[in-house]
């Protein structure tokens, strides 16, 4: 039996019908047309589908769409404010922290969740926080630098 689900995605109310086996990722991509969250594995091992639910970073492939009822979901599509990029998005471009770009939305969502909870992480903290986001192109070097640099810029902005 399909479930009627009402939730908030990137601040906007949404409604959709969910098959009981449908994941949140399927709902975002197929029902809501938000294809920025990617499926790389479907088993929670790659992080390409990372979203934030009620402030908690999760893999949207490991959550049923029906579980989203009444919850607040943030995806990559809500990260920039209009056409103004989030500092992380700018720093990823500036540092060339993406090559194919497929893992990038998940990395950005995860990195934002990190900086929101820990504005001044060490390199080791960044690496462990992002261990669930596989990137096969970059070797992570420039990704880590971009996150550290975005953190520094956001701390500066907070002081100023």
């Amino acid at each position: 039996m399909k479930q009627h689900v009402t939730a908030t995605v990137n601040g906007d109310p949404v409604e959709f019908l969910s098959d009981p086996g449908m994941t949140l990722l399927d709902a975002l991509r197929d029902e809501l047309g938000l294809t920025g969250s990617k499926e790389g594995c479907g088993s929670g091992d790659c992080g390409a589908c990372s979203v934030v639910v009620d402030g908690r970073l999760v893999c949207s492939c490991l959550m049923l769409a029906a579980e989203a009822e009444g919850h607040r979901i943030e995806t990559i599509e809500g990260m920039a404010e209009g056409s103004v990029l989030h500092p992380l998005q700018r720093k990823f471009i500036e540092h060339a922290a993406l090559q194919c770009g497929f893992c990038t939305p998940g990395l950005l969502v995860a990195a934002k969740a990190l900086l929101d909870s820990n504005p001044d992480p060490s390199e080791t903290e960044v690496r462990y926080w992002l261990a669930g986001n596989l990137c096969r192109c970059t070797g992570y070097d420039k990704v880590i630098r971009a996150v550290m640099d975005a953190g520094a810029e956001m701390r500066q902005a907070r002081v100023a």
Partner: peptide, 9 residues
Amino acid sequence: IGSTQIQGR
């Protein structure tokens, strides 16, 4: 157990 994302759930 698992990643930061897995820890969220």
